[in-house]
């Protein structure tokens, strides 16, 4: 694999969250964790054991959980709400909008099981619109880390940022390749690889698919910038413009609807400052379905092969 990012192991990004919140809770006594009956799924076991007084079980009542989190900030707590991504966003959008975002509350909305890779539970749980919903809220920071290590680092970093954050991660074991214990910088894109012919911007699980694609593309003589846009908002405009000023074409890759996702954000920047060909790897206005995670990514075109094909199209359109 790409030389600077050898795969260390395969781990769930949600487990990175669980380790991250445990570590930051040891350092910061104001960190509290709330859940809506999904403490196990969000890997809160260690937190619950060692910080029981800072753990708030809300039951299956996500709207109330968001409101309680907003209230807990008054007096200085830093609440992390935890449930699946669908129940973290679309189920509670108005609560987040009024009680958290509009009210400017320091709530960290931590969302697991995002996207198709949730797998067999199917479309009711596979939210593919959450990045869009969250990035539309004024003042909301939106973070989609790519692997275990980065999810752990992001989980810790957001405690020292004062403001609402949406942190999105997933269910399956996934290659873990970012260096261990590198501090996470909100809003600063991560350069994974540098090349000249095409800029690939990816987030979440799709960074790994893009890494595999870059290897294939380089064997074909197409060199690539691969940039991990782990912070969708505020987006690193400088990194994007610097890259496309060199490559003059774009591929974006995300486990999300094309409408409202990372691709939209990148495209806005390009359209305003440096228009160029742009191919989108994303779900095309469709709900998901039951299946194994990798089979779903295959069916919905979210694979390294699809990124390779998109890169070739984007280069050809220059």
């Amino acid at each position: 694999m790409l030389i600077d990012f050898p795969v260390q192991n395969e781990k769930e990004t949600r487990a990175g969250f669980g380790e991250g919140i445990y570590e930051i809770a040891k350092q910061n006594p104001n960190v509290v964790a709330l859940t809506a009956d999904l403490a196990g799924s969000l890997k809160l076991n260690a937190f619950m054991k060692d910080f029981p007084e800072r753990f708030v079980q809300c039951g299956i009542a996500e709207a109330n959980m968001i409101g309680i989190a907003a209230g807990m900030t008054i007096g200085g707590k830093i609440p992390y709400t935890t449930t699946f991504a669908n129940f973290s966003t679309s189920r509670v959008y108005d609560q987040i909008r009024q009680s958290v975002a509009y009210s400017g509350k320091n709530v960290k909305i931590c969302a697991s099981h995002a996207g198709l890779t949730l797998g067999e539970d199917g479309a009711t749980h596979q939210v593919l619109e959450d990045i869009g919903m969250m990035k539309m809220l004024p003042g909301m920071t939106v973070i989609v880390p790519c692997d275990f290590n980065q999810t752990k680092a992001a989980t810790m970093a957001i405690a020292s940022y004062d403001g609402p954050v949406y942190l999105r991660f997933g269910r399956p074991k996934w290659p873990n390749f970012t260096p261990l214990d590198v501090p996470f910088e909100i809003g600063k894109a991560q350069i994974i690889h540098e090349g000249n012919d095409v800029s690939i911007f990816a987030c979440g699980h799709m960074v790994w698919e893009a890494m595999k694609a870059v290897e294939q593309l380089e064997q074909m003589g197409i060199t690539c910038d691969l940039i991990n846009i782990h912070t969708i908002k505020p987006i690193d405009q400088d990194a994007i413009l610097k890259s496309i000023s060199k490559t003059k074409c774009i591929v974006t890759a995300e486990e999300h609807q094309q409408n409202g996702g990372l691709g939209d954000s990148v495209s806005q920047i390009a359209a305003q400052h440096m228009p160029c060909p742009h191919e989108f790897i994303a779900v095309k206005d469709s709900f998901g379905e039951s299946g194994k995670p990798l089979d779903l990514l295959q069916k919905y075109g979210l694979t390294s092969e699809a990124i390779v094909a998109a890169a070739k199209r984007s280069v050809a359109r220059k």
Partner: peptide, 17 residues
Amino acid sequence: GQGLSVAIGAALTKKLN
């Protein structure tokens, strides 16, 4: 319908503090 949740949250923080 949102204010009771918020008030409960603030009350929990008072207890923690």
